[in-house]
Simulated assay, not measured.
Amino acid sequence: MKKRGFGIGCMWYGIGNTGLPNPAGAFVDFLDDGTVIVLTGCADIGQGSSTTLAQIAAETLGVPFEDVVVVAADTGVTPDAGATSASRQTYISGNAVLEAARKARQEVIARAAAVLGVPPGEISLKNGQVWHGEEPAGLSIKEVIAKCRGEGVLTLGHGWFNPATTRLDPATGQGIPYATYAFATQVAEVEVDTETGIVEVKKIVAAHDVGRAVNPQNVEGQIEGGCCMGIGYALMEEVVVKEGEIQNPAFSTYLMPTAMDVPEVIPIIVEEPEPSGPYGAKGVGEPALVPTAAAIANAVADALGIRFYDLPLTPERVVAEIKKSKEKKEDDGK
């Protein structure tokens, strides 16, 4: 018999290292042709941080995204940005790039204002052009850069950011461990085969507060990937250790989800801008994984009326608990 169930998992997650300094730095420079180079220690390990940081720089400097080159995680030339962990890079390195870009922009705006004979406060940069108020000023950013170079003015900005935290008091555990938090709720629908114990996840709806989605497609991809990891945590992945030796060290024995195991995932991006984040952004790395296993376990409990306390919910464990539940009911009925 197959039974269906629904479960909810909720989470809040601190962005960055816990109660510790974790700064990041960045350099942003206009090149002679009006393009931009960003130097950041932020390592892009597949999450799309280089794309996000390029977008932040492009938005701040008023140039097309295609005109921004990111040099990342090169210890020979890039400033420290800390680890790509703790869901911190969009928030922390993003702020560092934002600050560096603002400083570079100030130099360009100051020179453009001098050329046009207007106050710097009336100048902005958009679409590769200098704007005066709400109208293009007939002057390109590239032309301003050329004037800066002719006068020996560098258009290099540097920035760094360290979230406002305090260490936890060792006696009370009190403090401010994170400057901001991510929030999420996921709902899972499962189907459980009571004969085989196989749990099939049919659908996951995942709503995540990300502050501001700098790149919505990247955010959706991270949510979908996190849900896939959560399925592995909930149903498959288990390190079996016997007398200090791992018994399943190969992919043939340590099971992980494949494309065949991934259900329909419906990502819902909730944007509640974070005042201290770059353009209101926070992070969505680990939060996408955190509530998934709980939602699946709750859905299995809803389907079977049995609460599980150990993961993963392998077929053997599910069948054993179903059998134990039946025996208990029979004993209670005697």
Rank of each mutant, 00 (worst) to 15 (best):
K2V: 01
G7L: 04
G9R: 08
M11W: 11
G16N: 12
G16S: 12
G16M: 07
G16Q: 12
G19R: 04
G25V: 00
A26T: 02
D29K: 08
D32E: 15
I37C: 03
L39E: 09
L39Y: 09
A43P: 14
I45T: 12
Q47V: 08
Q47D: 13
G48W: 01
T51A: 07
L53F: 02
A54P: 04
Q55D: 12
I56C: 04
I56K: 01
A57S: 12
E59I: 00
T60A: 02
P64F: 00
V71D: 01
T75A: 05
G76F: 11
P79C: 11
G82W: 01
A83G: 13
T84Q: 02
T84F: 00
S85M: 09
R88N: 08
Y91T: 10
Y91H: 13
S93Y: 04
A96F: 02
A96Y: 02
V97C: 09
A101D: 09
R102Q: 14
R105T: 05
A110K: 04
A112G: 05
A114K: 06
G117K: 00
P119G: 07
I123T: 02
V130D: 06
W131V: 06
H132G: 05
E135M: 13
S140R: 13
S140T: 15
K142C: 13
V144M: 14
C148W: 02
L154N: 06
T155A: 13
L156Q: 02
P163N: 01
A164K: 09
T166Y: 01
L168Y: 10
T172D: 07
Q186K: 14
V187N: 11
A188H: 06
E191K: 06
T194W: 02
E195A: 13
T196L: 12
I204W: 13
A206N: 12
A206I: 00
H208F: 08
V210C: 14
R212S: 15
N218M: 06
E220D: 14
I223G: 14
I223C: 13
G225W: 01
G226P: 15
C227F: 03
G230A: 04
Y233E: 14
M236S: 04
E237Y: 01
E238A: 06
E238G: 04
T253K: 04
L255I: 15
P257L: 02
P257A: 04
T258I: 05
A259Y: 11
M260S: 14
V262I: 15
E264L: 12
V270E: 15
E271I: 03
E271S: 07
P275R: 06
S276I: 00
P278V: 00
V284F: 12
V284P: 15
G285D: 11
A288M: 06
V290R: 03
P291L: 12
A297I: 01
A301T: 07
D302K: 01
D302H: 08
G305Y: 09
G305Q: 08
I306S: 09
L311P: 11
P312N: 03
P315G: 09
E316L: 07
R317N: 09
E321K: 13
I322G: 05
E327I: 15
D332R: 03
